Amino acid sequence: MAETAPRPPASAELEAALRSLGVADPAPRDRWEADAWVADWDGDVHGHDVYVLVMGARNHPGSARLMLDEFTFEDVRTEDMAELVRKAFTGDARVTRRRALLSRQLVLDVRAGSHTYSASVSGDSVDDLSTWARPLATP
């Protein structure tokens, strides 16, 4: 990351969440590209291979996009970032099956702060999810 660019608060929140989950090297890789930033991390969380990406814009420091493997959460408030990541990986979240017009979706819902965040992927089979998300599926 360029020396003149401050570290995005959401990246620091991601690192705090990973540290609280017992990750040995929780520091995400931060990069600035013009007025946008990206922070990503991959590694082991409780025996699962995980990829996490957070991205945002300099002029919108209060929220960011969060990707947990195949799930993408839009407009996650910075102050909710660490709690959302922790809850997703500790089992305090739910994956439900939903039908949307002609397609089926698997939806991950996580309550963080005073908000419930949702992210969906196409499909109906829990077997298609990352191993950490499978136990979150409701029957």
Rank of each mutant, 00 (worst) to 15 (best):
residue 67 M to V: 05
residue 83 E to R: 01
residue 90 T to S: 10
residue 138 T to C: 09
residue 101 L to Q: 10
residue 16 A to N: 09
residue 101 L to K: 08
residue 60 H to L: 11
residue 138 T to L: 15
residue 126 V to H: 03
residue 102 L to Q: 11
residue 14 L to Y: 09
residue 77 R to P: 05
residue 23 V to S: 04
residue 2 A to K: 13
residue 116 T to A: 12
residue 62 G to I: 04
residue 17 A to M: 07
residue 26 P to Y: 02
residue 117 Y to H: 03
residue 78 T to R: 05
residue 74 E to T: 04
residue 64 A to M: 00
residue 103 S to P: 02
residue 106 L to N: 04
residue 118 S to C: 09
residue 130 S to C: 10
residue 105 Q to G: 11
residue 99 R to G: 07
residue 41 W to H: 03
residue 29 R to E: 07
residue 100 A to E: 13
residue 1 M to E: 06
residue 47 G to Q: 03
residue 50 V to A: 02
residue 138 T to V: 15
residue 109 D to W: 01
residue 46 H to D: 10
residue 76 V to N: 00
residue 43 G to H: 00
residue 38 V to R: 03
residue 139 P to K: 15
residue 91 G to L: 08
residue 36 A to G: 04
residue 30 D to W: 09
residue 36 A to Q: 05
residue 60 H to Q: 08
residue 8 P to A: 15
residue 19 R to K: 14
residue 72 T to D: 06
residue 110 V to C: 07
residue 34 A to Q: 04
residue 123 G to W: 03
residue 5 A to L: 12
residue 30 D to N: 15
residue 78 T to G: 12
residue 37 W to G: 09
residue 134 R to Q: 14
residue 29 R to T: 04
residue 111 R to C: 08
residue 125 S to Q: 14
residue 100 A to N: 12
residue 29 R to N: 12
residue 23 V to W: 02
residue 130 S to W: 03
residue 126 V to M: 06
residue 63 S to H: 09
residue 50 V to M: 00
residue 97 R to W: 06
residue 31 R to S: 14
residue 126 V to A: 10
residue 56 G to Y: 00
residue 59 N to V: 02
residue 12 A to E: 04
residue 134 R to W: 09
residue 105 Q to Y: 10
residue 11 S to P: 08
residue 77 R to W: 11
residue 88 A to E: 02
residue 60 H to D: 08
residue 62 G to W: 08
residue 124 D to I: 07
residue 115 H to T: 11
residue 12 A to S: 15
residue 125 S to C: 10
residue 22 G to C: 08
residue 52 V to K: 01
residue 50 V to L: 00
residue 5 A to V: 08
residue 101 L to C: 06
residue 131 T to L: 13
residue 108 L to T: 15
residue 130 S to I: 07
residue 84 L to T: 04
residue 104 R to P: 03
residue 76 V to P: 05
residue 15 E to M: 06
residue 32 W to E: 05
residue 28 P to S: 10
residue 68 L to H: 12
residue 78 T to Q: 05
residue 27 A to W: 04
residue 77 R to E: 02
residue 52 V to Y: 00
residue 55 M to F: 07
residue 24 A to M: 04
residue 18 L to W: 08
residue 109 D to I: 06
residue 131 T to V: 13
residue 115 H to C: 09
residue 122 S to D: 14
residue 47 G to L: 02
residue 28 P to F: 01
residue 78 T to D: 06
residue 54 V to A: 13
residue 125 S to F: 07
residue 27 A to R: 11
residue 98 R to N: 14
residue 59 N to H: 10
residue 13 E to T: 14
residue 69 D to V: 01
residue 31 R to V: 14
residue 31 R to W: 06
residue 118 S to D: 11
residue 14 L to G: 11
residue 5 A to W: 05
residue 93 A to D: 09
residue 13 E to K: 15
residue 1 M to F: 12
residue 47 G to E: 02
residue 110 V to L: 05
residue 67 M to I: 03
residue 104 R to E: 14
residue 107 V to R: 15
residue 109 D to N: 13
residue 46 H to Y: 06
residue 61 P to I: 02
residue 28 P to R: 00
residue 131 T to F: 11
residue 6 P to R: 05
residue 109 D to A: 15
residue 1 M to A: 15
residue 134 R to L: 08
residue 14 L to F: 12
residue 20 S to V: 09
residue 48 H to V: 02
residue 137 A to G: 06
residue 38 V to G: 10
residue 19 R to Y: 08
residue 31 R to H: 12
residue 126 V to Y: 07
residue 128 D to S: 14
residue 128 D to P: 07
residue 39 A to F: 00
residue 92 D to S: 09
residue 114 S to D: 13
residue 118 S to F: 01
residue 12 A to D: 07
residue 113 G to I: 12
